[in-house]
Amino acid sequence: MTMDRRSVLGLGGAAAAGVMLAPGLHLIAAPNKTEADGNKRWAMLIDVNKCASDCTACTSACRTENNVPMFGDPTRDIHWIRKVELKDKSGRRPSVSLPVLCNHCEEPPCVHVCPTEASFVRKDGIVLVDKHRCIGCRYCMIACPYKARSLVYHKTKLPEGGNPDVPIRGSGVVEKCTFCVHRVDDGKLPACVEACNREGHGAMLFGDLNDPESEIAKRIKSVPTTTVRKDLGLEPHVHYQGL
């Protein structure tokens, strides 16, 4: 039997379609895998006017979610997010209270100075510390203009009622806010944002800057916002409104 050119091409096309389809079907059958998406740019917008000065819901939610310990020594305590009070010296403007956390810069100085490449930017813009590689040299702590990083000075234990999903950190590594990366990968909001919404303030907004339909992208376009120390040119991904 001989086959004409048309049927050979047709068979080839069918085989190629089968090969193309099979991995696709496999992907649909295995929904338990997630991966950081390079097309996304996670960012946060904090509305300072909505942030109550006496509220610490975000900081306590962060501690519970990420098992961040308090040693009771201000020089050694670890802060992933902290509340800062800004006062106008002339007294013309009322003082404002705002949470400060890792700004997940587009050009992070902490990553540039890290000698072991433990600090890195994930594909979706989240700046992380690979604690398996960190040697605790603290260059990054000096480089960070936001004081967002802390060294773990003491051994920690998983606290009573702690979150088993987030590992505690061994002493001698540097750590900081991760934008609750484990939650973001699960499609959830960071713990601080969720806590702020639960309290009814709604001062924190989290989302993908690259998606023009996302609320954060729309708000940043329509409302005047700023970033802390814009002059440094680090392009932080934590934006502030009303500062």
Binding site: N32, K33, T34, R122, K123, L128, D130, H132, V181, D185
Partner: peptide
């Protein structure tokens, strides 16, 4: 997992 964000539940 840490660097690429690949999380496979199994």
């Amino acid at each position: 997992t840490v660097r690429e964000g690949v999380r496979v539940r199994d």
